[in-house]
Amino acid sequence: MTNQATTLPESFRELEPYVADWALPTRQERYDMRLSKTIDELGEFYDAIAPRAEEAIGYLNELDLNDLPDDATRLLHLLYSMVLVSYPVNVFKQPRIPDSGAAFFDTVAEPSV
């Protein structure tokens, strides 16, 4: 899995299996992916990345956020996805927000990174 489009920084390469699904550039894409997964799939992703999150944040803090290399940007997107699945995995125990029925929301603005 050395395809440039799926490459993470060397010290985070064991997270490569999650890049295709979770290193998504927008919140809406990450949310849509969350809704397409089972709670077991969300848990697998969360359990793989959460133990490495602090280290990943430390790695990214050493870089210029406005000029991240592609591999670091993918790592950042994985962290964003981890945050997005943390409540379903740890609190809701399901991909959707409980008792929300058919309600949904659209993101109208994204952070620049």
Rank of each mutant, 00 (worst) to 15 (best):
L35I: 08
Q28N: 09
L79P: 10
P25D: 11
L84F: 10
F12Q: 09
I49Q: 05
M1Y: 02
A20V: 15
A20E: 08
V83H: 07
T26L: 05
R34D: 14
Q4H: 15
A53T: 15
T6A: 05
V89N: 06
L42D: 02
Y31K: 10
A20Q: 07
E14K: 12
P51L: 05
G101W: 12
F12S: 11
A72Q: 05
V19M: 03
L68H: 03
V89K: 02
M1K: 04
S112K: 10
E14N: 12
D47I: 06
P17I: 01
M1C: 08
D40W: 00
T26N: 02
Q4V: 15
L79I: 15
D21K: 13
S112E: 11
S81E: 06
P111L: 08
P111Q: 07
N3P: 01
L79A: 14
L79N: 13
D71K: 06
F92K: 02
A48E: 00
W22Y: 11
F105G: 08
T107E: 12
Q4Y: 14
M33P: 04
R13L: 05
F45A: 05
D21Q: 14
A102E: 10
E54K: 13
A72F: 07
E16V: 08
Y87D: 12
P98T: 07
S112T: 11
E41N: 10
L60F: 02
I57Q: 13
F105E: 11
E10P: 05
Y59N: 01
S11D: 15
V91G: 02
A72V: 07
R96C: 03
F92I: 04
S36N: 01
L15W: 01
D40A: 15
K93S: 03
V113Q: 02
E29H: 06
E55N: 13
L84G: 11
P69C: 06
Q28W: 01
N90T: 14
T26I: 06
D106S: 09
D47N: 15
H77Y: 12
P9A: 11
L68R: 03
L65P: 00
V19R: 00
G43K: 15
V108F: 07
H77T: 06
G58E: 03
L42I: 03
S36D: 00
T26G: 02
D71N: 14
A103H: 03
R13Y: 00
F12I: 13
R96I: 06
E10L: 13
